[in-house]
């Protein structure tokens, strides 16, 4: 493993449910610090499963393999510990949490992750700056976390969290789906800012090239039936957009 590697997934196989349905099969993935990786693949291929597995999602059983983050084996680590290490997952379906506003949730989250107490005034500045970056109406942060947010608003709020928490590695699971054209652009700019300003590393799961507009892509992986069927550079995205996944499914 080179010094520059931030994440290394080795031979990862996962199952789900009591029947132990296999989802991921012997997945290998190496991501360098500061890189942007794209994961594409048909519905049900296991893309979200991969994201959940890196974050430590409870529904999946790891049958074999390991996940190494910054040289440390995190395969059996709880999600909160992984978050403390600097991993972030933007959910495909963000969860509504009634009873706490986005503002106080994010503040306590940031305090947890940094281990420092952050003054309200100081935090509000961080928050305002982040909201501005993605053109987000300030009133959202005084509503309960995701409660009653529209599909697109929830996705935007995930990026807001990303910009406030500034993790080392961000996995974005279809953050672009459900966003209108303008929102895709602002979110794309937000992601790009995360990368440039904070030196972030990205794994982006997407069906849509528009989100990549403001980003330089280092690698693309095609996930089919739980396996990485093909890895390549940015050119693979165009190829898939033109020809679909058929050739990998049959292969």
């Amino acid at each position: 493993m080179s010094n520059n590697t931030i994440l290394e997934i080795k031979n990862l196989s996962t199952t789900v449910g009591e029947e132990k349905t296999p989802i991921l099969r012997n997945v290998d993935l190496t991501v360098g610090r500061g890189e942007t990786h794209i994961i594409m693949g048909p519905n049900g291929a296991g893309k979200s499963t991969l994201g959940f597995s890196i974050m430590g999602g409870p529904a999946y059983e790891i049958e074999s393999g390991s996940i190494i983050f910054e040289g440390e084996d995190i395969t059996d680590m709880s999600p909160d510990k992984r978050a403390m290490k600097g991993i972030y997952l933007s959910f495909q379906n963000p969860i509504e949490v009634p009873g706490i506003t986005m503002r106080s949730f994010l503040r306590s989250s940031l305090q947890q992750l940094t281990g420092k107490k952050i003054k309200f005034s100081e935090f509000n500045k961080i928050l305002e700056e982040a909201m501005e970056m993605i053109n987000m109406d300030p009133s959202y942060v005084d509503r309960d976390v995701n409660v009653g947010f529209s599909g697109g608003e929830k996705k935007k709020a995930e990026i807001l969290q990303l910009l406030v928490l500034k993790p080392k590695l961000a996995i974005l699971d279809e953050t672009d789906s459900g966003l209108d054209v303008d929102a895709v652009r602002t979110v794309s700019q937000g992601i790009s800012a995360y990368k440039k300003k904070y030196g972030g590393t990205l794994i982006i799961i997407t069906h849509n090239a528009a989100i990549l507009e403001a980003l330089d892509v280092d690698k693309t992986h095609v996930l089919v039936k739980g396996k990485i069927a093909k890895s390549g550079g940015a050119e693979l995205i165009d190829e898939i957009n033109r020809n679909g996944f058929e050739k990998y499914i049959d292969g």
Binding site: M55, G56, G57, P58, S78, P79, D80, A83, F105, Q112
Partner: peptide, 19 residues
């Protein structure tokens, strides 16, 4: 209690108990 919601909060750094 939804495991998914607990996971969501934990993924933001909160301990299981706090979540």
């Amino acid at each position: 209690i939804s495991d998914e919601a607990v996971f969501y909060l934990m993924s933001r750094g909160m301990s299981e108990e706090d979540a």
